[in-house]
């Protein structure tokens, strides 16, 4: 089994602030891997470093066997796509869904655009009726479906998910999570998913890494976490917190 993403000693520095302090991980092909942590843990920075949106100070990132340099070429973006956290901010306010989905196809010079757009919309459960709407005519969940369609339209093998449901209502979250599982199964995708919510990560991922202050705390399988077989106190704290408020009186 080869690694889809292999990261070794990754450091990210923003203006002297070390957002990631030497993190290593390996995501197998076809696996769903979770990154859990609180704000400032560096979990989103790690995704951004892979895509080239965050400056890598040192360390190596290998994606599908290719070591990434300073810049990413077009081929990279056909392999790796990302879904952002805020569905209200990730769609261009002046473009219709049609335009949004056409853009990646135009950039990569893909010919059968019409068919792909219709297929992508069907796949995320939106259908043709949504094709010519603007972002402001869509609900949060529908926007996130469009964002997923946009990520899938280039047929990538790796999908990076940055808190894809944290801005959504619980019932909509369930729908989007189900959709993500479904497209993963259908396209045999590799997921690297970031969330602050342990329950979502154990639901979606086979393995996960707990992060704090830019460092890895521990790496677990979902079943270890479910069975509370964790070795670090921080993880235990997170587990306890995820069970809701407990009155101690």
């Amino acid at each position: 089994m080869t690694a889809a993403v292999a990261i070794e000693g990754l450091e990210v520095v923003f203006d002297r602030f070390r957002a990631l302090k030497g993190v290593s991980l390996e995501v197998r092909e076809g696996e769903s891997y979770g990154l859990v942590g609180e704000s400032g843990s560096g979990k989103s920075t790690l995704l951004r470093a892979i895509t080239g949106l965050a400056p890598v100070a040192s360390g190596t990132i290998i994606v599908n066997g290719k070591t990434l340099g300073k810049t990413r070429d077009k081929a990279f973006y056909r392999d790796v796509q990302m879904v952002f956290q805020d569905p209200y901010g990730s769609l261009h306010p002046r473009q219709t869904v049609d335009r949004l989905l056409q853009e990646p196809l135009a950039i990569h010079g893909i010919a059968d655009g019409e068919k792909r757009i219709e297929r992508a919309l069907d796949e995320v459960g939106l259908g043709k009726g949504f094709r010519f709407r603007y972002a402001h005519q869509l609900s949060g969940g529908q926007r996130q479906r469009v964002a997923i369609a946009r990520a899938l339209i280039l047929e990538p093998s790796i999908l990076l998910l940055d808190e894809p449901t944290s801005a959504l209502d619980a019932s909509v979250q369930a729908e989007v999570l189900n959709l993500l599982e479904e497209v993963r199964r259908r396209h045999k995708l590799t997921f690297l998913m970031v969330s602050h919510d342990l329950a979502i990560i154990t639901h979606m991922c086979e393995r996960l890494m707990v992060m704090q202050n830019g460092e890895a705390v521990e790496t677990l399988t979902a079943s270890q976490l479910i069975g509370h077989r964790v070795s670090e106190d921080y993880t235990r704290n997170l587990l306890r917190a995820s069970e809701g408020f407990v009155r101690t009186a």
């Binding site: 619980a170 019932s171 369930a174 999570l177 599982e181 479904e182 329950a199 639901h203 479910i226 995820s242």
Partner: peptide, 22 residues
């Protein structure tokens, strides 16, 4: 009931998650 059910919970595996039928 739908709101209670649709959230993923640690240790209660349900794939797919039940969704709300409004």
């Amino acid at each position: 009931r739908g709101l209670l059910n649709c959230m993923p919970r640690i240790g209660f595996e349900r794939h797919p998650l039940p969704v709300l039928d409004r």
